[in-house]
């Protein structure tokens, strides 16, 4: 499985995700600078977490217009899987590859801690090694993770089963108390229509070794590798 990780000025999870991909898929990803217009022939493109362009204007707004993003959109349209984690999810919504927007957390704080998630769909290359309804624990680290979309978009995402992950409490319930940032419908991650593009705020690449506090993110990369 060949992959590419796009590196923007201000990306800071690019190396973490590269380690996860290398360990679990067995092949090191190509690291592609945002100013490049060519991406090698790969089976997966990753937009990593971080603070591209210092979050200027809006999170992900400037990165969405980086030279490389034209090619990312072209590949996505051809069905090449694209994964956006955290800032990568913000870039995906800003570039129109996923609907909605991510705004400031309801409590205004930058939140860095483990959260409980429910896997809402196992029907994708990213989630196929989980079971639908499975509860997992993965860290978040963001200030702008509050997912917003108009009522019609939310209805469509729910109706088409395009919510990939939802924030839940320790009992697995999608309550307000289990929602760290105020996201609509406790949404933590969504797919595009073909389920080839996934954006999520939590960081599975930070949960691949028990030594680092948890390994629930391992199955995510095992799914990608399968």
């Amino acid at each position: 499985m060949k992959s590419a990780v796009i590196v923007f000025p201000g990306s800071n999870c690019d190396r973490d995700v590269a380690v996860a991909l290398t360990r679990i898929t067995g092949t090191a990803p190509a690291m592609v600078w945002h100013g490049d217009q060519a991406i090698p022939n790969v089976d997966l493109i990753v937009l990593p977490g971080g603070f591209s362009y210092g979050d200027y204007l809006r999170t992900g707004a400037i990165a969405a217009h980086s030279p490389v993003m034209g090619e990312v959109k072209t590949r996505a349209a051809k069905g090449v899987p694209v994964l956006g984690i955290c800032n990568g999810f913000q870039i995906l919504t800003e570039s129109g590859l996923l609907p909605g927007a991510l705004v400031r957390n309801v409590g205004l704080h930058f939140i860095c801690r483990d959260v409980h998630l429910k896997v809402e769909s196992a029907d994708s290359m990213f989630t196929r090694r989980y079971k639908k309804g499975q509860q997992i624990k993965i860290p978040i680290a963001h200030a702008d993770g509050n997912y917003r979309a108009d009522a019609e978009t939310l209805r469509r995402l729910e109706g088409e089963g395009r919510v990939a992950f939802r924030y839940v409490n320790a009992k697995g319930e999608a309550t307000e108390q289990g929602n760290p940032n105020g996201s609509a419908n406790n949404i933590a991650g969504i797919f595009n229509e073909k389920r080839t593009v996934l954006g999520l705020m939590p960081h599975p690449e930070r949960a691949i070794e028990q030594l680092l506090g948890g390994s629930d993110g391992r199955a995510f990369f095992e799914g990608i590798a399968a």
């Binding site: 809006r58 400037i62 217009h65 919504t93 800003e94 609907p99 927007a101």
Partner: peptide, 9 residues
């Protein structure tokens, strides 16, 4: 439309 505002929000 293209950059300065995010017309979703």
């Amino acid at each position: 439309e293209r950059l300065l505002a995010n017309t979703v929000i």
